[in-house]
Design a protein around this nucleic acid. Sequence first.
DNA 1: GCATTAATATAGCAATTGCTATGTTAGGAC
DNA 2: GTCCTAACATAGCAATTGCTATATTAATGC
Lengths: 149, 149
Amino acid sequence: MARKAKLPKPLVDPEIHVESFRQTRNNRRAEIVEDYVELVDDLLTDAGEARQIDIAKRLGVAQPTVAKMLKRLASDGLVVQRPYRGIFLTEEGKALASRVRERHRIVESFLRALGIGEESARIDSEGIEHHVSDETLEAFRKFVEARNQ
Amino acid sequence: MARKAKLPKPLVDPEIHVESFRQTRNNRRAEIVEDYVELVDDLLTDAGEARQIDIAKRLGVAQPTVAKMLKRLASDGLVVQRPYRGIFLTEEGKALASRVRERHRIVESFLRALGIGEESARIDSEGIEHHVSDETLEAFRKFVEARNQ
DNA sequence: GCATTAATATAGCAATTGCTATGTTAGGAC
DNA sequence: GTCCTAACATAGCAATTGCTATATTAATGC
């Protein structure tokens, strides 16, 4: 057997390895819910109302896709739909939105502090935010804080 | 209307906003393919062979799930299945694996350089790696390099 | 060389997240 | 008040990614 010039880092044990993938799959399932709740909160704050059409336009999906998703969020107790009055967040929804928004804000600020351009920071943070543990988020926060002094 | 104490950052234009979500959805579609190809490459390097059972064990999914996915990767020209001999990467598969593995390595090193613990760095990098643009990856690489001098 | 077993393949199902097409209805213009 | 329109709801479909149950087959031990 030929040996590699640069010795390869051996794989971790399967039982340890699998945890990363499980965690990542769990995060992926939560992503969409988090995106919706965060966006509804943003629209309510910024525009005073959150309509299906505006949500669809910003997410880049069709309106019935949004309708179906909101039904699920409503049955999960995160939003309340007032017909023809738009979407509102329950207390639970508000709490989730606030956590998600803060995390997103930190991740985006962190990328900017690292020197990433505005556009890449916006796009990358949208994907990264859902996969950041509390430990990493805290490190990001401290990094931004240090740069702002 | 009551005014917020801390003035809220206004939302970007919908046409700009939607780009982040579109990009993130595209990344999500590529994630699984990247995970498989990277893992197959790791197993080939580390163990000399990549069996469905080992892939399934490490990803935390059932063997038929892996079989179905490998069929797709084979039809995409990324892997070759030699029955009862395991999985092998095509040239295209190798090229993808090498890109993905390098990106993963940089992201994980970056988190470690930031002071994140081993376990969180392993788990977070598994989720983050798929959402890092070239620009951000380069910034991560430079950060690690600077710390290693 | 044959039986056993471990590896793989296949069938059939479910949940999720998207879509288009099309109904239904609340609110505002007149 | 009635009509129109924009907002929303619903039906039905497709792709993806997971599952369990079960069949098939290559390798290997004896």
